[in-house]
Structures are given as structure tokens and as C-alpha cells.
Nucleic acid binder design. Structure first.
Lengths: 202, 202
DNA sequence: GATTGATTTGACCAAACGGTCAACTGAAGG
DNA sequence: CCTTCAGTTGACCGTTTGGTCAAATCAATC
């Protein structure tokens, strides 16, 4: 007894099209700044047709956020207790920076939400997110206690990785304005490797 | 012949009240998410009265942004060519972190604007901001060339200071959710000093 | 090719929005 | 007291917005 009937091909395709359009518009203008007309136009659908697939504007936003959270936390999930500590952390930094380079809209969508107090995703922050960070912080603390990396506060280490990598997506306009249009990412990757290597092997 | 007549006491006070209310509301909801009714209510004034002092919603926003930019760049302005390099940079980090602690709303207002492509302040990014950063980057590059700090890309060094300090204001909700409500700032200050000291004296 | 349910849309609605205006109030100087 | 002008506001307006609905169209199955 499936409570929800199976989706047709058209439903699968149009839901995808709408989410892609919603990502484009929400990440540019924020939740309140985005309009259903904009999203519909971007998706190539009529406004009532949007609301045939999603019950409300907020439902599109929530669907985007929750499908995003997994992708966003995957790099931290992959941090391996049994790997080489410095290499593991540097890999995490690289993976997170790659997300900023390849999925800047997702980063800005998330930033917009957190910036405004995470009204539609707040629960996940103190729940899944905190659980994961607590676990990985314990791993990092263990590495420090064993003398395999220089001692650092593991929570602020994780925050600093988030801040440094997401900055290149979220503040892209500012970064490129200062650099005069040059692509920031090659330089960023080299700089961040240098920074965390020095921090962890001091 | 003063083109603009002198301001009365009431004008000075009410303009200030409106800007304070606008800061509160804009920083929480963004430009599009904020309404004149919210700002008026927060300021304890009627909506038509708001528009007696500012010609439009956008005018309030622009007034906030431009008066903010100076405050925001002051810590970088203060970076002294003739001081001790490591101490100068660490002082810059501390001053910038203090801004995040003491003026989080200003930080979020700015973040909101840049996140959405800086539509109302874009010009200043490639202008005043770039000019200042170029000048200070040259100073830092000089310190590196003279062997007084470890060699680092000065632009990414500045970006990293912005990212790390503003993160604690802009992503406050997330940081506190992970830390379980604990005040992040004491730990952040210690961590950032450690990080930049190791980076610059490697 | 007829039927049935999935899909699409033009027309519409109520609420919220930024902004206007004429009229009212208050305060300061003569 | 009266005049004058800064300050204030209730009522209002046109537009935009999220969302609804009945009717039309399309696609799959029999």
C-alpha cells in the first residue's frame, strides 16, 4: 500500500526542471526576493503549472535545502579516522573548495538561509549537523592528543574550513572585483593548502 | 548659499532612529524581505513619516551601506607599513573579529548585499575597496619579499581574514547550533591568533 | 478511437507592498 | 495670540505577489 503513488516520467522531469529553476532564482535573490513568476519563467512553465508540482513557494525552497544538505555534508562525512591526519584534512579542504567552485549557487542558497537565521532549516543545524560535527571533532581531537597533528581546537578548525572555502562562492562578486576578474580558485587552492599545512604541522 | 538647509534636532534624531531600525530589519530579512511597515514599526514611526525623512526604501538601504563601508574598511586602513609585520596582521585580525562580535548586524547587512551580487554597492567594490586592498597587498608582499613574514599570497591572505572573521557574525546561528549555544568568540580569537601566527612565521 | 486521468493554462482573487496626498498637529518667533 | 513652517498621519492608490479554479488539452490504456 504505497501512500504516495509512483511518479510519472513527466512528473520526474518537471520536478527536476522546477528545482533547477528555483535554485537559480533563490540563490540570486533569496527566498523573499524570488517570485513564483521568475521561477516559472526560468523553468519554462506557467505559474499554475508550478503549483501543480509543488504546493507552495516555500515547498520548493525546502525541497532544495534538504536535498542540498546531504551533498554539502558529504565531504565532512568522508573524513576518515584511519587515514593520514594531515592528508585527510587537506583532502576535506580540497573537496569543500571544489564544491564552492562547481556549485556556487548551492552555496549561496545555503548562505542566504543561514544568514537570515535559518528559519526553514534551523532544526537540522542543531540535529544532524551538530551530530556529525561532534563526531568528526572527536576524531580530530584524537589526532591532536596523539601528536599526529599540532594541537588545535577541532570545532574552530572545521569552522575555518567552512568559512574559507564558502567565501569564494558566497562573496564571489567581491573577490573577483578585488582580483580584477582573475579566476580566484587556482590561487585559493594553493593558499589554503599552504595555510592548513602550516597550521597542522607547526 | 547652502544647497542643503541645516538639519533640525528632530531631523537628526529621527534619521538616526530610522537607520537603526532599518539596520535591524534589513540585516534580518535582506532588502526585498524587509518592508517599510516593519521598519516603521521598529522605529516607532508611521510609514508616511519614514518617507518624510527618506525618499524611498532603497534610500534607507543605500544610506546604511555607504555609511557602513567606511567602518568596515577602517581596520584594514589601519594596517601600518612601518609596524611589526606579524603584530600588524594579528592586530588586523583582532580588530576585524571585534567588528563581527560588536556589529553583527552590519556584517550581515553587507553579506546580504554581496551575496546577491552587490546590486546597490557594486561600484564601490571595484573602486575604493580594490584600491585599498591593492595598496595593502603591496605592503604585505613587501614584508614577504624582505623575509619578515613567510611568503604568502597577500590577496588570499586578506580574503582569508575577511572570511574567517565575518563567518562568526554571518553564520552565527550555525556556529552556535554546533557549539550548543556557547559563546564562540573567545575560542575564535585564540584559534585565529594561532592560525595566523603559524602561517606567517613558518 | 473512446475513455479516463494526468497535465496545462487564462482568468481571477485577496493580501501585501511601496509610495502619495491632503489634512491635521505642534512648536517657535514675532 | 497669531503666523508660519516643520512634523505627522489616516486614508488611499496602483502594482506585485502567492495562490486558486474551472475549463481546456494531452497522453496512455482499453
Amino acid at each position: 500500500m504505497p501512500a504516495t503513488p509512483p511518479l510519472t516520467r513527466i512528473q520526474i522531469k518537471n520536478r527536476q526542471v522546477i528545482l533547477e529553476a528555483g535554485l537559480e532564482v533563490f540563490s540570486q535573490h533569496g527566498f523573499r526576493g524570488a517570485t513564483l513568476d521568475q521561477i516559472a519563467s526560468q523553468a519554462g512553465l506557467s505559474k499554475p503549472n508550478l503549483l501543480y508540482y509543488f504546493p507552495s513557494k516555500e515547498a520548493i525552497h525546502v525541497a532544495l535545502l534538504s536535498s542540498l544538505l546531504d551533498t554539502w555534508l558529504a565531504p565532512l562525512q568522508a573524513l576518515d579516522d584511519h587515514g593520514d591526519p594531515v592528508a585527510e584534512i587537506l583532502d576535506y579542504v580540497r573537496r569543500k573548495l571544489a564544491l564552492s567552485r562547481d556549485f556556487p549557487r548551492e552555496s549561496r542558497l545555503f548562505a542566504n538561509e543561514v544568514l537570515q537565521g535559518a528559519p526553514r532549516i534551523g532544526g537540522a543545524l542543531g540535529g544532524d549537523l551538530k551530530t556529525l560535527v561532534d563526531a568528526k571533532a572527536a576524531v580530530i581531537r584524537g589526532w591532536g592528543a596523539a601528536g599526529r597533528i599540532a594541537p588545535v581546537d577541532p570545532y574552530h578548525l572545521i569552522f575555518s574550513i567552512w568559512a574559507l572555502t564558502q567565501h569564494y562562492a558566497d562573496f564571489d562578486v567581491q573577490v573577483r572585483a578585488v582580483l580584477g576578474g582573475e579566476d580566484p580558485f587556482p590561487g585559493a587552492e594553493a593558499y589554503l593548502e599552504q595555510l592548513f599545512r602550516r597550521l597542522l604541522t607547526a
